[in-house]
Amino acid sequence: MAADIQFSPGELSRGATFYVAGHRGLVGSAIKRRLQAAGFDAIIGRTSSELDLRSRDDVFAFFAETKPRYVVLAAAKVGGILANSTYPVAFLSDNLRIQLNVLDAAQENDVERLLFLGSSCIYPKFAPQPIREDALLTGHLEPTNDAYAIAKIAGILQVQAVRRQYGLPWISAMPTNLYGPNDNFSPKGSHVLPALIRRYLEAAATQAESVTNWGTGTPRREFLHVDDLADACLHLLEHYDGPQQLNVGSGTDVTIREVANTIAAVVDYKGETRWDTTKPDGTPQKLLDVSKLAEAGWTSKITLQEGIERTVSWYRDHIVSLRE
């Protein structure tokens, strides 16, 4: 209900120091682009080699030196089913340390507005669809990414705790499956959509007779272009102030098979698509209820077809410089 949404903050100062943690990643780079387009002229960021966010002393020193007024925490260790299943310790430990260090340093240095970004994987595996914000902590998580999810849940709770104890208007947003420029297209670390883009482009280039994808192709997923997310983030920073995390998505979902067929058509792949049903599907469906986001005044604009076409074009232009 609209009464549950709390509005107020107002326009952010375009000249204030704005720290985007993870400014070179998929999400952080999109947020930086959106802020620049909106006229922010004091955006700061540090690469992981310049500032290891897992180092508490270094993070506190950085905040003490730069004194940002606004912060978006988009830095995280992320990956697909394979990476999450293989390295759960790193996904839990690294993300907990990043969050604790940044949020604690931000609180100590009186950061006025902070947006913590999580993921839709925080919700129970069998949450009623579409998933409402109040489904959090009501059931078991998807085992293939539970370590990452627990870390993100801890971040949400820390933001809520800061609001209660210090009265700071910090907020959290939980995006659905994201894709777009600066995504991870590596075979071992990518999420499903960039993995499919790379697979079909390579198959088209070599004229392979078939492409084999994991699972059955039947799970349903919601996808959001990262430029849409960045637009939503700025909107929420200026128009939302409440303790509850807000879902950010398109409000529609498709099967993995449909995504694969769309990508195959976009890259003009003529071969056969096969499905390895010995591999895991993950959560059967993950569609977010974005009604509260709509009440806060924002809806997505980039269609999946358009977003895939733009991402394929970007990948082709940057393939020589992408990480493996």
Results as ranks from 00 to 15, higher is better:
Ala3Pro: 00
Gln6Arg: 13
Ser8Gln: 11
Pro9Leu: 07
Gly10Cys: 01
Glu11Tyr: 00
Arg14Gln: 14
Arg14Ala: 12
Val27Glu: 06
Ala30Ile: 08
Gln36Cys: 13
Ala42Glu: 14
Thr47Ile: 04
Ser48Asp: 10
Arg54Phe: 00
Ala61Gly: 10
Phe62Ala: 12
Ala64Thr: 11
Glu65Met: 12
Ala76Leu: 07
Lys77Pro: 00
Gly80Ile: 03
Ala83Gly: 00
Val89Thr: 06
Leu92Ser: 07
Ser93Tyr: 03
Ser93Asn: 12
Ile98Asn: 03
Gln99Trp: 01
Val102Leu: 15
Leu103Cys: 09
Ala105Asp: 03
Glu108Pro: 02
Gly118Ala: 09
Pro124Arg: 08
Lys125Thr: 05
Phe126Glu: 14
Ala127Lys: 06
Pro128Val: 05
Glu133Val: 14
Gly139Gln: 04
Pro143Trp: 03
Ala147Pro: 03
Ala147Arg: 04
Ala161Phe: 07
Asn182Arg: 13
Phe185Lys: 05
Ser186Asn: 06
Ser186Val: 04
Gly189Pro: 01
His191Leu: 14
Pro194Trp: 01
Leu196Ile: 14
Leu196Glu: 00
Ile197Phe: 02
Tyr200Cys: 09
Leu201Val: 01
Leu201Asn: 04
Glu202Gly: 05
Ala204Gly: 13
Ala205Met: 10
Thr212Trp: 05
Trp214Met: 13
Gly215Phe: 05
Thr216Met: 11
His225Val: 08
Glu238Gly: 04
His239Met: 08
Asp241Glu: 15
Pro243Gln: 12
Pro243Gly: 11
Gln244Cys: 12
Gln245Lys: 08
Leu246Cys: 05
Thr252Gly: 06
Ile256Leu: 14
Ala260Thr: 11
Lys270Glu: 13
Gly282Glu: 11
Lys286Asn: 09
Lys286His: 09
Leu287Trp: 03
Val290Cys: 13
Lys292Arg: 13
Lys292Tyr: 07
Ala294Trp: 00
Trp298Arg: 01
Gln305Ile: 12
Ile308Trp: 01
Glu309Ala: 12
Trp314Met: 03
Leu322Trp: 02
Arg323Trp: 04
